[in-house]
Design a protein around this nucleic acid. Structure first.
Length: 415
DNA sequence: TCTGGGGTCCTAGGACCC
DNA sequence: TCTGGGGTCCTAGGACCC
């Protein structure tokens, strides 16, 4: 037992909602509990709108037999989430629905209802904030929480507080989550996976060799398929093996920054703070076409999509209160290769026409021989609209505010 | 089995400036 | 003249994450 007056141990929690999208759908359709269900994007196949066909019935009264199945799906959608029952068939996140249909044709396919997930996301985060105010948003279904100074945050290494949060979320929503509590974000993130679903895992510094080192390097958040492949080739498979490397060897193969980071990570070291908010960097919209399009032969269709994406980005900027000065596009060709083009303006903008115009200039710099499967529009180098206003009023009062000069009347976009 | 959409961060070269 | 180094911004690509 440590004396109560000693400095509190740093205790960081990572909380991850279990099969989040699918679990929200099961709240609405409890009759699907225990069945293989996948949530996926893309158009509905065949048949007309199932909602209309179902009439006014309450969701929980719709017979299981009336739900769409994976079988016969055609399109370019992927699975965003699969229930645990579906995962037993080998289907999972990011898998194409066509592929999944072959593995589990009887799985029920539900469309993505982002608004519903947003609602539950807001709800569970609000519950956490009432208990522990230092929470970092890491996307729709996960957060970091600093337990260090929260009353009860040290008890049983954080288990008591983790249990309280789990119960509060479940009581309010019916949703389960998994929590890892550890000395830092890196270890907490790993720990939250240990006892999924609906589990808690507690990790202390002393547990490094027993609980962390036996695991695959790929379990480190930040080591993806490419880095893992390279590590395998070097004969490094587990985090323990990674930790035994000379840091110089890692730097030789991965560069100064990544090499040093990998070495620290393998030793369970991570000093990143839990941050309440961080400034947004970019806002983008992109779409994959139902069939590949050609810049010349499908010019009209492509042009309409392009303009719509720009309008959506402008709308998103306005709604979230940002302006930006880097306008960019992204193209994905039929062979799945992607390119980007961007340009930085002298002034910030959020205007749909300005975005469309400059994105058009970017497009002119891109090769357009090959057919396209995706088009995206992005605005980066964001600042908030209010920061922008402040900076404008502080600028030298060149031409008087509200007075147009002859120059200003020249259309910027003259043909 | 042909692979969504929305993001962040890093690298690296060239321009440009001091 | 043939040799500088550092800092910052811009652009393109890529890895990675949810």
């Amino acid at each position: 037992m440590s004396p109560p007056q000693s400095a509190p141990l740093r205790r960081i929690a990572h909380l991850d909602m279990d099969a989040f999208y699918a679990s929200v759908e099961l709240l609405r359709y409890p009759q699907l509990k225990g069945l293989p269900v996948v949530i996926g994007g893309g158009r509905r196949p065949q048949e007309e709108d199932p909602e209309t066909a179902r009439g006014e019935r309450a969701p929980h009264k719709i017979p299981v037999a009336e739900f769409a199945r994976l079988q016969g799906y055609s399109g370019r959608g992927v699975i965003t989430t699969a229930t645990y029952a579906a995962r037993r068939f080998g289907v999972g996140s990011a898998m194409g629905l066509m592929t999944a249909a072959k593995l589990c044709p009887d799985a029920i396919l539900l469309p993505v209802d982002f608004a519903a997930y947003q609602h539950y996301s807001r709800t569970f985060k609000d519950i956490i904030l009432e208990i522990a105010p230092l929470m970092e948003d890491r996307g729709i279904d996960e957060v970091y929480i600093d337990f260090t100074h929260v009353p009860g945050g040290q008890r049983e290494g954080g288990r008591v507080l983790a249990r309280l949060i789990q119960k509060s979320i479940f009581d309010a929503t019916g949703l389960t989550c998994s929590v890892g509590v550890a000395p830092n974000k890196l270890l907490a993130k790993m720990a939250s996976e240990f006892n999924k679903p609906n589990g808690i895992a507690i990790v202390f510094e002393n547990d490094l060799q027993t609980k962390i080192w036996p695991r695959a390097c790929r379990k480190i958040n930040g080591i993806g398929p490419k880095a893992d492949e390279k590590l395998q080739q070097l004969g490094i498979h587990t985090i323990g093996e990674l930790a035994q490397q000379e840091v110089g060897r890692l730097i030789d193969h991965f560069g100064q920054k990544t090499g040093a980071w990998m070495f620290d990570a393998a030793h369970g070291l991570d000093t990143r703070p839990v941050v309440l908010e961080s400034a947004q960097v970019s806002i983008s919209r992109e779409t994959t076409f139902e069939r590949d399009l050609h810049a010349v032969r499908d010019k009209a269709e492509l042009g309409a999509i392009f303009t719509r994406l720009c309008a959506q980005v402008a709308q998103d900027l306005a709604r979230q209160g940002y302006v930006g000065k880097t306008i960019g596009i992204k193209l994905r060709y039929d062979d799945f290769k992607s390119i980007t083009r961007d340009l930085t303006l002298p002034d910030y903008t959020g205007d749909a026409n300005a975005i469309r115009h400059h994105a058009g200039l970017c497009l002119k710099r891109a090769p357009l021989q090959q057919r396209l499967r995706l088009l995206g529009v992005r605005v980066g180098s964001l600042i908030t609209a209010s920061e922008h206003l402040t900076s404008l009023t502080k600028k030298a009062p060149e031409p008087m505010q509200g007075v147009q000069t002859a120059m200003d009347l020249t259309p910027a976009d003259a043909p």
